[in-house]
Design a protein around this nucleic acid. Structure first.
Lengths: 98, 98
DNA sequence: TCATTTAACTTTGAAAAACAAAGTACTTTT
DNA sequence: AAAAGTACTTTGTTTTTCAAAGTTAAATGA
């Protein structure tokens, strides 16, 4: 029998990164502040998890202005979308198919 | 909007403990060595994760003999089964219902 | 019977990850 | 001019993870 946890993506072990991904999968783009409020995190904590996801190229940052106020939003990359889907499939398989 | 990760169980953030639970949910009882092989872990690592689950009263240890050889098996408690189910529900909700 | 092996741990220590808090740079609002 | 907001980075502590080695007890092999 194959190791059932081997197919899980280490990046998504973190509940916070899981949360970010699951929000981004249904919201085309979302701002730093919205994420911060939704996940109830400090700036630093959120920023570092976003950075991990960005390093993995699972999401991209978009800097824009709303009026004259800076606004940073995040969107998934195709790679991110695919990695997340693969992870969820692995999870489901692990739980159902033993 | 409610924090979507708040309902996740911290104990199941660990892929290893997740793996143990998902094995135990479909196998009434399973031995230390079977778990070790299935999850490809060192003794110490597995023992400590099992200990975490036992502390949480999510599983129980059963010591018995096979012939004259000691055999340690693990089974879920009702609490464990329920906690796992709740966690999976929360996961599903998080992913689907945003 | 002495040595080795296996099972199931515990202990130790190191590395990695998570996190809060404070600091920063820039802008906007008051 | 002062205060507040955005989106960070840096620092340092705490927590978690894990491998490796040591432990105990029993079983098996020579």
């Amino acid at each position: 029998m194959k190791n059932p946890i081997g197919a899980l993506n280490k990046i998504f072990d973190s509940r916070i990164r899981l949360g970010v991904m699951s929000i981004l999968i249904v919201n085309d783009s979302i701002s730093f502040n919205e994420l911060k409020q939704m996940l109830e995190l400090t700036d630093g904590n959120l920023a570092s998890h976003l950075n991990t996801l960005e390093q993995a190229e699972y999401l991209k940052v978009q800097k824009s202005f709303i009026g004259k106020k800076t606004n940073t939003t995040y969107i998934l990359t195709d790679l991110g979308r695919q990695a997340f889907k693969t992870h969820l499939d692995a999870l489901e398989k692990m739980i159902k198919s033993l």
